[in-house]
Nucleic acid binder design. Structure first.
Length: 483
DNA sequence: ATGTCC
């Protein structure tokens, strides 16, 4: 095996020099400590970081967050920015689950309000109400006309239908809707797959979790977000389901042909792309935005049903419950953003694939309520350990196009995890730690067991120490439903 | 992630 020529910049930054892969236009830059780096070097993800550095119009560096692992084309945990004038846009660098993302909800409850029996009842009720599992269908069956509205209006569609309130939209990245979505550029098959899946959780690492605030690192920021120790929160992690997956598949096909048409040479066809300004590039952008809007509507519906379950199960008033959205963000998406590049403002095509936007205080796109502290960054961990709330920083804006990590990142493949879980009861192991789980299938529980993931605390420590986000609070799981 | 192989 050839050694990877990584150059240490400091304890948390590593450079992958131009030349590691032929045709690199910029270096790669990896955010990691030595221990995480050892895991990262076990798979081919650094090669994928280098491959992305060959893409036309790439700006700065091909970036990798500490939770990177091997993915389709670009690693999960990769950030790729290109210039709108001469750069490309790539579905493989965005990911199959378009606008996979996280939503965090605060409540007025504390841990004491949820003794074990109440918690069990709540988890069972959530599992009964919210469809989970691969291919699951929800209670909303969208007509063709309604489907088009969802794809252009996003979370606002759900709020208009009564699933939530206007304040939810203000507390969401992009207000829960990207302008410029075009439902006409979404295939019939994608529409069909999405029609029955609005308000469903899905499978894999997607979850709905009841948590409590276990530790506060920044009390001023926590106060602005409405978080205090022992408070109950709810986190929802899901995306655009079969609809986004189908859109990615459809456009990967189109981009494969675009490579020939636009004479783009790549080290890996999984990075298939088209010039941003080309017809193909613009069509993918508009379809990708439609999928992103579906995902925002999806998380909005799920939040509303969770709200109903809490009200019914605990038999309290909405006011007493105080079920308010703190923030909702995308961690698989392409955004057109203005950034400073060598002292000049340039418009960039920012691909974040398993990476979270982390804009600083004062930034235009941070909700008014959080302007003083910066954009909330939500980092889901595995179901046995913890999740984090961070905030965006100026350093992130300057170094990583305003980006940070997105989660723990797998260390065991699904297959390896199933093998290691043989003969064990993961359910019991978690219950012994006070965590109540309900999943559609035993296999998901094994695939998603805590040891299948890196320690999210270590990942978060890297981005905190590197300064590309700041720790605000740690959340511990109490009850989880999964697909 | 994903009607985990149209």
């Amino acid at each position: 095996m050839t050694a990877i020529p990584l150059k240490k910049i400091d304890d948390y930054r590593w450079e992958l020099p131009i030349g590691y892969v032929p045709g690199m236009r910029v270096p790669g830059r990896v955010y990691a400590d030595e221990q995480l780096l050892a895991d990262i070097m076990k798979d081919e993800s650094l090669k994928q970081v280098a491959n992305a550095a060959t893409l036309p119009g790439i700006i700065g560096a091909s970036l990798a967050m500490p939770d990177i692992h091997y993915g389709y084309g670009l690693p999960i945990g990769g950030v790729l920015a290109t210039d709108v004038s001469d750069g490309i846009i790539s579905p493989g660098a965005t990911g199959y689950d378009i606008n996979c993302g996280v939503r965090l909800i605060r409540t007025n409850l504390t841990r004491q309000d949820l003794p074990l029996e109440t918690l069990k009842t709540l988890v069972a009720a959530l599992f009964a109400k919210i469809p989970t599992g691969v291919g699951s269908h929800g209670k909303i069956k969208l007509s063709a006309a309604e489907s088009r509205k969802v794809l252009t209006e996003g979370a606002a569609w759900a709020v208009k239908k009564g699933y939530g309130q206007d304040a939810d939209l203000e507390h969401s990245e992009a207000g829960g809707c990207l302008e410029g979505a075009d439902s006409e550029l979404v295939s019939d098959r994608a529409h069909e797959r999405g029609a029955g899946q609005l308000g469903t959780l899905g499978s894999g690492n997607h979850f709905l979790e009841i948590q409590y605030v276990d530790e506060i690192y920044n009390s001023d920021a926590a106060k602005v977000l409405g978080l205090a120790e022992n408070q109950i929160t709810v986190m929802i992690h899901t995306g655009s389901r079969g609809l986004g997956h189908q859109i990615c598949t459809d456009y990967l096909g189109m981009m494969g042909q675009a490579l020939t048409k636009y004479k783009i040479e790549l080290p890996d066809r999984q990075l298939a792309c088209a010039p941003f300004k080309s017809k193909e590039g613009q069509q993918y952008l508009a379809a990708m935005r439609a999928a992103a809007n579906f995902a925002w509507a999806n998380r909005q519906c799920l939040m509303y049903w969770a709200f109903e379950v809490f009200l019914m199960t605990l038999n309290i008033s909405p006011k007493a419950l105080g079920f308010n959205l703190i923030y909702d963000l995308a961690h698989n998406i392409v955004k057109i953003e203005k950034h400073q590049v060598e002292g000049k403002t340039r418009e960039l095509v920012v691909h974040r694939k398993g990476a979270t936007r982390a804009f600083p205080s004062g930034h235009d796109e941070v909700p008014a309520a959080y302007k003083s502290i910066g954009q909330p960054v939500l980092i889901p961990g595995d179901m046995g350990r913890c999740s984090y709330v961070l905030m965006g920083t100026q350093a992130a804006l300057e170094e990583t196009f305003g980006s940070t990590c997105h989660g723990a990142g797998r260390v065991l493949s699904r297959h390896q995890a199933i093998k290691q879980a043989k003969g064990r009861s993961i359910y019991r192991e978690l219950e012994d730690k006070g965590i109540i789980i309900k999943t559609a299938g035993r296999e998901t529980l094994a695939e998603e067991m805590p040891e299948a993931y890196k320690d999210v605390s270590q990942v978060v420590e890297v981005v905190h120490q590197a300064g590309i986000s700041g720790k605000v609070a740690r959340l511990r799981p109490l009850g989880v439903i999964k697909g």
